[in-house]
Write a protein that binds this DNA or RNA. Structure first.
Lengths: 222, 222
DNA sequence: ATTTGTATTTCACTTATTGAAACTCCATTT
DNA sequence: AAATGGAGTTTCAATAAGTGAAATACAAAT
């Protein structure tokens, strides 16, 4: 197995990431971000362009192409977890008025929000599908790494983001932890004892997302 | 300039497309789809895997990774056209009860639905964001290639999809055509004279999406 | 036990990728 | 106006990096 990895492809994907994150980049910026020489970056960006993954705007800047939108939408809709979790998200928002999220582990120490329901309070936590979140020091991270205490939920006050408290619980698929369900609250609005109450709701909803099957996990997430 | 394109990258992107379209594929299938030898496909898929663009399920199959979801969501949300068109889509659905779409040209003779509003009739056209549509023989295609007659809209009955009639009009950004706005109706439900009425509405809404500026197009779409 | 199909590894061949340098534009500065 | 600096682009020789056939390993089907 080893490090079988294709350099030019790795680099191209790095560039693609840089372009998507920045929204619009010049060749020089993209090259710097990805640590490549301008000529190499140009060549790779052209390849990305000819395949629709990247496009150029009037001014010559690079931005995400439609292929990215297309594949992303397809991939998201094939995540049945998202549809399974919709009821739970809605109920949590209804119950608490706070924003609720479904997240899964992504790569290198991060997770992603796969589904989002915004809260109803006018001051509320706001994020978006696709948002990348660190696993270290977050409630979602604790849950996804299996560090959920016996209470069934994790509360992290003022973790990565200041002034917000996150309450998360694991969505289990057979043996594995497939995802985390969480509610995020402006810290000023919540007392210790309240977080416990919400925690129990989150834990209950999370537990109910996947049918309790004694069968093999197997097809796991998705 | 010429064909400056990096083969391994092209191939990797082909594989990524194959994986995303099929939902879940074995190595052999993916390799066949992309016309690659198994060993090459394996190497490239591993690279895609290590960067989060592809992941493997329990059975060893390949499926779209979270990076795809993430970048896709980001890209879609940075398309300001989508939010600008929301009102128009809503009004068209309200007026006609039929499904309404915003589409833009993608690559090689195809377009993509960037935004969708489902109609309210129980028998209605249904599609999804990211859906790829041919430009040949479709109302959207005619509009995007600038073939809109002076009436301001295009009607295509039973074009690519049988039994449906599409009515489309161009969204202009300065000089360019940035997108197409369309309504898609089951053909049995619409008479000639009705399509003209809807056409005028579509054309009016499409024209109003972007502020009429005499300034340079420039930043165009997005 | 044999066959068939897929996944994976190895390896010699060489093709395809690479980056420095050169050149062109264009906007700013002197 | 000339000079400067920065971005985008092209060229090209060096070789690092990617390729696919074949070998091996595994598993399921006959």
């Amino acid at each position: 197995m080893a490090d079988t990895s294709t350099r030019s492809v790795e680099r191209a994907l790095l560039l693609l990431g840089a372009v998507c994150e920045r929204g619009t980049v010049s060749l020089a910026e993209a090259a710097r971000d990805a640590g490549l020489s301008a000529s190499t970056a140009l060549r790779l960006l052209r390849t990305l362009e000819s395949t629709g993954f990247v496009r150029r705007d009037g001014a010559g800047g690079y931005r995400a192409g439609l292929r990215v939108v297309q594949l992303g939408a397809q991939a998201l809709s094939s995540e049945s977890l998202v549809s399974l979790a919709e009821g739970a998200l809605d109920r949590l928002v209804g119950l608490t008025g706070e924003s609720a999220y479904l997240s899964v582990p992504s790569h290198d120490g991060h997770g992603v929000y796969l589904a989002v329901r915004e809260g109803t309070h006018s001051v509320r936590h706001a994020s978006w599908v696709g948002r990348s979140i660190p696993l270290e020091g977050t409630a979602v991270g604790a849950v996804l790494s299996g560090a959920t205490p016996s209470t069934g939920y994790v509360v992290v006050r003022d973790g990565v983001e200041a002034d917000v408290t996150a309450i998360a619980a694991p969505v289990r698929a057979g043996g594995r932890i497939a995802a985390a369900l969480s509610v995020v609250v402006p810290s000023y609005r919540i007392r210790e004892d309240e977080s416990a109450g919400i925690g129990m709701h989150v834990a209950r909803e999370a537990a109910a997302i996947l049918p309790v099957t004694s069968a093999t996990p197997e097809g796991e997430s998705a």
